[in-house]
Amino acid sequence: MNPAAAAASALQTAPPGHAWRQLKSRGMGAVMLLCCLLVMAPLFLVLYFLIHEGASAVDWNFFTQLPKPPGELGGGMANAITGSLVLLAMAAAIGVPLGVLGGIYLAEYGSARANYWIRFAADVLNGIPSIVWGMVVYALLVVPFKSFSAYAGGVALGLIMIPLVMRTTEEMLLLVPQGYREAALALGIARWRMITVIVVRTALKGIITGVLVALARVAGETAPLLFTALGNNFWNHNLAEPIAAVPLQIFTYAISPYDDWHRQAWAGALVLLAMILVLNVFVRIISRDRKFN
């Protein structure tokens, strides 16, 4: 474009290169849209294949039967499903009290300096690969008691939950208006009663949301269970012995050479993912109206 002519008509018409710049802007917009589509694609592809390959194997037997040895058709994951629930209950028993109390300390008691370090530690812990937790619990619980056990699996998952629950609890407690605390204290209630009865009670929905999200996250964890809970093809009658879990079962089946086991792996994955996604959607719905101000 001729610069002199452009300058002369600068006030009346679009600046030089305007069309090209607009075009470029549009083009980059399209590139970003493409990025977005590419990022979302795997979720839909995974869902499609889970349903396509797995839905046919999800039937009544899947929820009520034990796994069958290779070569025999059918069988289910009843033991793995109950095993996962047992492990999650144990994880919650460890992760929820410690996480919630830690969150209470951060929001209600801690000094700014102490809080900085505790938060920092929580975020670093959260970044530790889950397989490392498996090794640590192996050294702590499996070696001394000389057996893989449901307890060890539950502890591994519970330790992973602590920082997750702690950070969300803290966030939720900080949303409670300061006036609630002052009003309660002004009425002469003890501080710990104020915290448990007023503050935690007010933020309870948010805290439960955080706990459910943390549970959904550890429900799919496989690596920390590999050498703690180990897996089991039968019912577990003693928590000091190995226990089955759905993610472990999926892994074992997926790397096996049998077609029928592959089908079971897809079915297990479908059930596991459905549970996790339903939990996540449920959490979104209950947490929709948790604003306090």
């Binding site: 979720l43 294949f49 390959e53 799919g220 892994f251 997926a254 592959h262 996540n280």
Partner: peptide
């Protein structure tokens, strides 16, 4: 929400999908 759902998919399920698809 879709991105958050993607984050919720367990590693082992991506592995399964990775191996077979």
């Amino acid at each position: 929400m879709v991105v958050e759902m993607l984050a919720a998919v367990p590693s082992v399920i991506f592995g399964l999908w990775g191996v077979f698809v």
